[in-house]
Design a binder for these strands. Structure first.
Length: 892
RNA sequence: GGGCCGGUAGUCUAGCGGAAGGAUGCCCGCCUUGCACGCGGGUGAUCCCGGGUUCGAAUCCCGGCCGGUCCA
């Protein structure tokens, strides 16, 4: 039982729902059901529970935040929707995501305690229901207050949290207490769990109050030292409740929908029908009973024609999808997501394609860019950062729309091909498996396939379970856990290795003591200057010298809190004193690469735009690579500009500072742009800053070894840019002396090319062009003469009459020429059998003579080969004369 | 990161073990006041690259590269 003082004090009763068996608290003696979907229908549509003047989402959000500020919560700025501080999810799906895992695990203190926030969140789990159910959104704001209770610092818990909710809904919003139901439930997610209240008003869940205090381990609940108040108030849901509109979309996107309807000439939906449908839709799950059946059921309940209902609904649904998805996509792009075929980018593409598909199926023809631009103007006030990314959003949407149209254009051909194939196999239409294959390989949604097939006169039935079939095809494979170099258990008792490479990145040799040797090749020291692989920088190599020998260090890895040296040769004995020497030339080159990477990504960002984020990087010699998010291959001019900017930064010889900072402080000061290299798992993070405090060029969280100043990089040379995936561009570059070698190599090749082409270095291009045109000319001439020669040969060909056929034998080594001769002769004379001999190869060309019996007889005398009706080819062994005789015999 | 599909004239596409075919474009001519259409002729392809199987590979197999798409 989950109880709260405010409920008991106010006279709430605890009851059990006869349908879902949940326990709930209510003031109404006559309330039987829990008040949640699907046990009860919505009761607020057309008649909201209060007449309170809340005119916009902005106002509601502000009232919520102020309400908690007045109750001593610190207001926190919203986090990005892209969860760059986590490696387990792409997008933020709830306000608590902002604090997982570092705060929730207790490793990092929260930015304030208690705090209040309104966090834009994205959830794609119910994406198929958006636009249809009347209440599902892919993007929403979760308004939340959080309190983190530590063993030594208590903030507040169930009683206060419930009272806040009670007061917010009753006093701030003026909802009568008897309208509010608190349903008890259990919440689980992200490895944590706890009891919770679902706050319900007239059938709509408007908030969830989670009391998180368990960790889930092997299916069991383990009490956490930290007790976290995790609440979520749905901004859009509450606004809908207050407005009582037929769907949540009408409430949230009302002004936009009006303008869109006007522009597209889509009539206002009949509010009463929409409202009723929304209520019924809320109570059924179209995935389970099937969408078509759901429509029919609803039509029946409302008392209208099913076909009519569909016609009314389809364009409205399309607009709802447009409104919801376009806001979500805008959030994503503004946060640096580039639509692509993998990663978070795929999710953005998915949403854009869903919009396009729905508009098309509803028969709405309008450029998506214009519709989205219209929406952006509505979003401007609430989301200024979205407005700032307007140009990028529109460009990317336009790009996606064009790609999608391109795909649709290919649809008739693809569908026709699939139909032909199906017919060949004896099927009259496309099977569900065919549809899945078409979607998988070409991205053609089954509805569109059905549409296209119809125009080709074939009915295709789209199965209701299409998407689960698709899922089955992509059944997950077991991911094998990454094996660590050395079993953690074998080094867990050792003290943390002292990291000399951080204390002095320029240290080349050091003295240390051998603490342990595992399996004769893994050496752990008490301290080391060998950098352990991490952050895209390879581990160092070098040597460990000790009295009586030396061992080569070939790799260095972190295992837990110690650093393991992988050695070849006789390892030093445990307890020995060693002198470690690192391969400084290599290491120094890698430092140039690493600092160079930071300079480069910032230069790319400054040239191409703020949507540039690191998508991966590997430092190596002689070349390194840096993958960034960008939607097209940069032009040679852009690359040149990036190089110029990067090298002027090198020349400016900016200082490079490394600071260890508390996570919250660093995030507050620099923002999430810190996390270019991925997740940094620590309470304190290592910040690498290039340039002075007053005007830093670049700041990143990074665990690598860096130079003291950018001048040491020497030079940054981009060698190649390539698109490794949609939305990801790879820069291959080099620095320092490796860059010099590269340039020298280019020069050497240029010199050679000049020599071969007979020009000088200054005019190689001219010389090569000349060569190419000469080659072309020669080719043309060769063709002409070959043609002439073939004609000549054809004319001088002596054919002997054999039976009713003519036989000609010619010796030719050139297959192309032989073909030409054959064209000349067999085309004119249908009775001619032309035999071309070349080496031990033999070809027979005829104009119309069946070659099969000839080949058969030739095989008997050493010929191996075959061919079509009028052509044969093969090799022979033995005497030519025998062969020709056999031929004559076969012909006559 | 993984699965699926594909890569043949400038562009689109057929062929899927036996002489690389069509459409469109381009060039020339005819028709026309001119353009477009129409007609006749011509031009244009290392069948993505490398290896293997075969007498013979665009076609089958293996490995790359590139593109598309779906799923994480």
């Amino acid at each position: 039982m989950l109880s709260a003082k405010i409920l008991e004090r106010s006279g709430y009763l605890r009851k059990q729902c006869p349908l879902c068996k949940s326990y709930f608290w209510t003031l109404r003696h006559d309330q039987v059901y829990c008040g949640d979907q699907p046990c009860v229908p919505y009761g607020f549509i057309g008649s909201p529970p209060v007449k309170v003047a809340v005119d916009s989402l902005t106002e509601l959000r502000e009232r919520f935040l102020r309400f908690f500020e007045r109750r001593s919560h610190a207001r926190i700025k919203r986090y990005p929707v892209v969860a760059r501080w986590r490696d387990d999810v792409y997008l933020v799906g709830a306000s608590i995501y902002d604090f997982q895992p570092w705060v929730t695990s207790g490793a990092v203190p929260p930015p304030a305690n208690p705090l209040v926030i309104s966090q834009p969140s994205i959830r794609l789990t119910d994406v198929d229901k958006v636009g249809r159910s009347g209440r599902h959104l892919t993007g929403f704001e979760m308004m939340a207050h959080h309190a983190f209770n530590y063993p030594d610092k208590y903030v507040y818990w169930i009683d206060e949290t419930t009272e806040y909710a009670y007061e917010f809904f009753t006093k701030e919003l003026g909802i009568p207490p008897e309208e509010i139901t608190f349903k008890e439930s259990m919440w689980e997610g992200g490895g944590n769990a706890g009891e919770c209240y679902e706050v319900l008003v007239r059938g709509l869940e408007v908030a969830t109050l989670v009391f998180m205090h368990y960790e889930t381990k092997e299916g069991k609940y383990v009490e956490l030292p930290l007790k976290i108040v995790d609440t979520g108030y749905g901004l859009e849901r509450i606004y809908w409740l207050l407005k009582g509109t037929p769907t949540i979309y009408d409430a949230v996107f009302g002004p936009f929908l009006d303008r869109a309807r006007q522009k597209l000439g889509v009539p206002e939906p009949p509010a009463e029908v929409m409202g009723k449908a929304s209520i019924y839709f809320g109570q059924m799950d179209p995935e389970v009973i099937g969408l078509e059946k759901a429509y029919d059921l609803i039509a029946e309940k409302i008392g209208v024609d099913g076909k009519w209902l569909r016609e009314v609904f389809r364009p409205q649904e399309a607009l709802y999808v447009l409104a919801d998805h376009s806001r979500t996509v805008s959030w994503m792009i503004a946060d640096g997501v580039i639509p692509s075929n993998s990663g978070a980018g795929y999710l953005a593409r998915l949403l854009i394609r869903r919009i396009l598909k729905n508009l098309k199926l509803a028969g709405i023809e309008a450029p998506l860019v214009e519709l989205i631009d219209m929406h952006l103007k509505e979003l401007k006030a609430d989301y200024p950062e979205v407005w700032a990314a307007r140009d990028l959003i529109l460009e990317l949407v336009d790009l996606e729309e064009r790609k999608y149209k391109e795909m649709l254009k290919s649809a008739p051909t693809v569908v026709k091909k699939a139909l032909d194939e199906a017919r060949r196999k004896g099927a009259a239409s496309l099977s569900p498996d065919d549809l899945v294959a078409l979607y998988d390989s070409f991205g053609l949604p089954p509805e569109i396939v059905a549409d296209v097939a119809k125009t080709q006169g074939v009915e295709v039935k789209v199965p209701d379970d299409f998407y689960s079939r698709l899922a089955a095809r992509h059944a997950k494979k077991e991911k094998q856990p990454e094996s660590t170099l050395v079993e953690m258990a074998k080094v867990i008792d050792l003290p943390r290795t002292r990291e000399l490479f951080y204390e002095d990145p320029y240290m080349r040799s050091f003295k240390a003591k051998v603490l342990r040797v595992v399996d004769g090749k893994y050496v752990v020291l008490d301290q080391t200057a060998f950098y352990a692989e991490g952050g895209g920088q390879p581990g160092d190599v070098g040597v460990l010298k000790y009295s009586g020998g030396a061992a080569k260090v070939v790799d260095v890895q972190r295992v837990g809190h110690v650093i393991v040296h992988v050695v070849e040769g006789q390892p030093p004995p445990e307890g020995a004193e060693v002198v470690g020497e690192i391969d400084w030339e290599r290491r120094y080159a890698l430092m140039k690469m690493h600092t160079g990477t930071h300079v480069l990504i910032q230069s790319i960002r400054r040239v191409l735009g703020p949507h540039i984020w690191q998508a991966g990087a590997q430092k190596d010699i002689p070349s390194s690579r840096l993958d960034v998010t960008h939607y097209k291959l940069p032009t040679p001019e852009e690359v040149a500009e990036i190089e110029r900017l990067a090298n002027s930064t090198v020349q400016a010889n900016l200082p490079v500072y490394v600071k260890i900072m508390p996570r919250n402080e660093a995030e507050a000061k620099y923002g999430f742009i810190l996390y270019q290299g991925g997740v940094v798992p620590a309470r304190e993070i290592r910040v690498v800053q290039i340039g002075p405090d007053s005007d830093p060029y670049d700041v990143q969280a990074c665990g690598g070894t860096h130079l003291k100043s950018t001048g040491e990089i020497g030079i940054i040379k981009i060698q190649k840019v390539e698109r490794i995936a949609d939305g990801v561009v790879r820069f291959i570059f080099t620095t320092g002396l490796h860059a010099l070698s590269y340039i020298q190599e280019l020069e050497r090749q240029l010199g050679q090319a000049a020599q071969v082409s007979g020009g000088s270095r200054d005019n190689v291009v001219e010389a090569v062009k000349r060569l190419a045109s000469r080659a072309e000319e020669a080719e043309r001439k060769w063709r002409r003469y070959a043609e002439l020669y073939a004609k000549q040969l054809a004319q001088s060909l002596k054919a002997e009459q054999v039976g009713r056929y003519k036989l000609a034998v010619v010796e030719l080594d050139d297959e192309d020429l032989a073909k030409k001769v054959a064209e000349e002769t067999t085309g004119k004379d249908k009775d001619l059998v032309l035999v071309v001999l070349g080496g031990n190869k033999l070809s027979i060309f005829t104009g119309g003579v069946d070659v099969a019996p000839i080949v058969k007889s030739l095989r008997e005398v050493g010929f191996r080969g075959g061919g079509s009706r009028t052509f044969a080819q093969g090799v022979y062994s033995g005497d030519v004369k025998t062969l020709i005789d056999a031929l004559r015999k076969a012909l006559s």
